[in-house]
């Protein structure tokens, strides 16, 4: 008779405090970087992967300029550790364009003048993208709510809303 074998659980493995390999899926590509566990996703994107489209504003979750998509949902990259993103899909502003072709949301932002200084724009666009992926026909209020976690100190909000609604229209047709 076969004897039941009780397997020991693998010991949870501690990593760090020195540099340790971390594999990140960013814009559909897999990258392995060598970082300390304290490396935030934001610093990993900007410093280790050179993806400087994601901006560093407050670095404490109160501005929204570091917004990226984590498994399709907007999050603040400054409040996540790179090491905890292993196994998840990260999308940054660089992932939106295809070759020379910019994304319809980006096009709509240009046409509607939906930014002045542009520092908050990558985050705004990713928040809008997550909204349109989940809800292709949003109302103006839906858009306002979707970008309520992205500060624009130039005050371009009305044009951001217009651009998002225009992009929604185009993406549907």
């Amino acid at each position: 008779m076969a004897k039941a074998v009780k397997l020991r659980k693998p010991q949870a493995q501690k990593r760090g405090p020195g540099k340790t390999p971390v594999s990140l899926k960013v814009n559909h590509g897999l990258h392995t970087i060598f970082v300390e566990p304290r490396r935030t996703l934001l610093d990993a994107l900007r410093k280790d992967l050179g993806l400087i489209g994601t901006k560093k504003g407050c670095d404490e979750g109160t501005c929204g300029s570091c917004t990226v998509l984590f498994d399709g949902k907007p999050v603040y990259a400054c409040l996540m550790l790179a090491i905890e993103c292993e196994g998840h899909e990260i999308e940054t502003i660089e992932g939106l364009s295809q070759g020379d072709q910019i994304h319809p949301i980006q096009q709509a932002f240009i046409e509607h003048d939906a930014f002045q200084c542009g520092f908050c724009t990558p985050g705004q666009i990713l928040s809008v993208k997550a909204l349109l992926d989940a809800n292709p026909s949003p109302s103006a209020d839906d858009v306002k709510r979707a970008v309520s976690g992205n500060l624009c100190r130039c005050g371009a909000y009305p044009k951001i809303v217009q651009a998002a609604l225009k992009a929604a229209e185009r993406l549907k047709s």
Binding site: K9, A12, Q13, K14, R15, G16, P17, P37, R38, L81
Partner: peptide, 9 residues
């Protein structure tokens, strides 16, 4: 400050 990191199973 740096720390060690471990995933709880």
């Amino acid at each position: 400050k740096n720390f060690q990191y471990v995933n709880a199973p």
